[in-house]
Design a protein around this nucleic acid. Structure first.
Lengths: 245, 245
DNA sequence: TAAGTTTATATGTCATACATATATACAAAT
DNA sequence: ATTTGTATATATGTATGACATATAAACTTA
């Protein structure tokens, strides 16, 4: 059975380690204060728009310097949980769900293993979105898809061309799902996708052949049902499944 | 067509706004430096384990005070992109993909709309994971599922009981997918799930009736195929779909 | 070779001062 | 009476200097 017990990775750890003897985490004030602040906001049932105490008050309450408080607040500002205006003070705001995620993906610090897991996640979503697509399909998006398919059939020649139209096609799919969170997720994973496509280009042509075209998918989307679409999508994505497994 | 163009929300904006006259973003040094640092690491092709210049050097290069650099670095430390040791300096580390995400979910600052989108995302994943499950199913996990099902059939009486076993069942499913990223994602969305369950408890009993049991799902997982599983899972999740749409 | 000691150094924390923007109040002008 | 200009108080933004603290590295001792 795969063990997912501890997920906190300690990169700087020594090679040889004694089981049950984890190194002490290097604790610092900023981490503590960040935690305390977040818990404080939750406990006080603050919601977006509420003002929070000013820096000097927080520092006094927590008995730390203003620098520490500012470092902790700065983190929450990055997550979009806080906005601050001079003289006015600070207010809580609805955070941007993917803010940190984007930066992490873009950092190019993720291991190959993590990237593969993200690609799997993308495949999972591509298969699972079918239900929403049939619930929310509409003429405007179907026409946009039609346009992409026609253009691709007419103009695409090189594999790179097809890759570009593929991105475009799937982008519209996510849009059709009517879920902005999903839509942005797909957009972000573009980098992961490109990485994999790059890795796959070493695989020979035959293994990359796609048995189900965008035209096929579109037809099912117009006249079929969720299960048929998933069956087709699975075949459409088969090269990626084969690459991963 | 749904417009997802701009997603940067400005909570504190005035009611009446003139089109084409967006308020100036309140720029500050910390944001700039955070950006510069991230781009610097990318441009230099640094990877996990590499050491980065020390604080005073960065401050000198960027021509800002050490405070600013420290605030920016503190943010990257929160994302897990950087670890620092006294005297040794700082090194880049592989960030924790979901670090920021967890804090945002826990903050309870998300709007109802965002929570609904996250629940949709969860439904999408629950449907899409089917493929991976049939690829990675194994005796250990199947037995664990069996155990949950048997225990539920024997002991569960109240709706709250069933909810608990439901969480347990789906948790094992995600584990069986063999994808840690997915597994943690499910775990995190527990809060969103609870929120929805709470909201649903106002719906009358009949609408919450489930036509496909965990026993049914398990049987298909043992003897069926991905498409059959999805069909069953869709029915299993029908109360949630009905709640959302 | 191993254990103890010293030293240099980079991060962690604190205190203080000043810059900057702006909400508020008030005065002047139309 | 409503707008426009001016002054002031205030909370955040930035800079600087000082010291605490842990620890890698060098050195000494046993």
């Amino acid at each position: 059975m795969t063990d997912f017990g501890k997920s906190k990775l300690n990169v700087a750890k020594k090679e040889s380690e004694f089981s049950g003897l984890e190194p002490l985490v290097n604790i610092n004030m900023t981490d503590l204060v960040e935690d305390k602040l977040r818990n404080y906001f939750i406990q006080k049932k603050f919601k977006a728009g509420d003002t929070i105490p000013k820096e000097v008050e927080l520092a006094a309450s927590l008995n730390v310097s203003r620098s520490i408080v500012r470092e902790a607040l700065s983190r929450l500002k990055m997550l979009g949980m806080i906005e601050s205006r001079k003289r006015r003070g600070m207010i809580l705001t609805e955070p941007d769900i993917w803010s940190g995620f984007t930066k992490i993906i873009d950092s190019k610090l993720l291991s190959e293993h993590s990237l593969k897991e993200l690609l799997e996640l993308r495949l999972v979503i591509e298969m699972g979105v079918s239900e929403l697509l049939f619930i929310r399909r509409n003429d405007a998006d179907l026409e946009a898809l039609e346009k992409v398919v026609v253009t691709e059939e007419k103009n695409a020649k090189t594999p790179a061309d097809h890759a570009r139209y593929d991105v475009e096609f799937h982008k519209i799919l996510y849009h059709m799902s009517g879920n902005e969170t999903l839509y942005r997720f797909q957009k972000m994973l573009g980098y992961v996708f490109n990485y994999i496509v790059g890795a796959m280009s070493t695989v020979n042509e035959k293994d990359r052949a796609v048995s189900v075209s965008h035209r096929d998918l579109l037809n099912i989307l117009k006249n079929g049902d969720p299960r048929a679409f998933q069956e087709a999508m699975h075949k459409h994505l088969e090269p990626y499944y084969r690459f991963l497994l």
